[in-house]
């Protein structure tokens, strides 16, 4: 495998999306090419940075309530009917 081919596989390697055969070829190339190995490490680090640093916000309670209402409206109506009959 040459560097060009390794770069094509780089992201998939970071995300564990390579086939077994691709992975073997890729790792073999890394063991021989420092440049690609460094780039691979950097790419993994970049993914980690994104995962750790991008804040996930909590949906506001009003939104949660309205979604719950949306999907249970008819249940409530139905129960009410029973209760008041």
């Amino acid at each position: 495998m040459n560097c060009q081919k390794a770069r094509v596989l780089m992201s998939a390697a970071v995300d564990c999306e390579l086939s077994l055969k691709e992975e073997q070829g890729f790792l073999l190339h890394l063991s021989e090419c420092k440049e690609c190995k460094d780039e691979f490490e950097e790419a993994k680090k970049t993914k980690m940075i994104i995962k750790e640093k991008i804040v996930q916000f909590k949906a506001p309670q009003t939104l949660i309530n309205s979604i719950m209402e949306l999907t249970s409206l008819s249940t409530v109506e139905h129960e009410d009917t029973i209760l008041f009959e």
């Binding site: 996930q56 916000f57 909590k58 949906a59 939104l63 949660i64 979604i67 719950m68 999907t71 249970s72 008819s74 249940t75 139905h78 009917t81």
Partner: peptide
């Protein structure tokens, strides 16, 4: 009759909540 009709609907709601509503935070983000 009303009850059996709504049982189906209720099942759908339940499934929807466990399958879909659980992703609310991800969707919001």
């Amino acid at each position: 009759k009303k009850e059996s009709l709504s049982r189906e609907e209720r099942q759908k709601q339940l499934e929807f909540q466990t399958e879909a509503v659980v992703h609310l935070n991800s969707l919001y983000n």
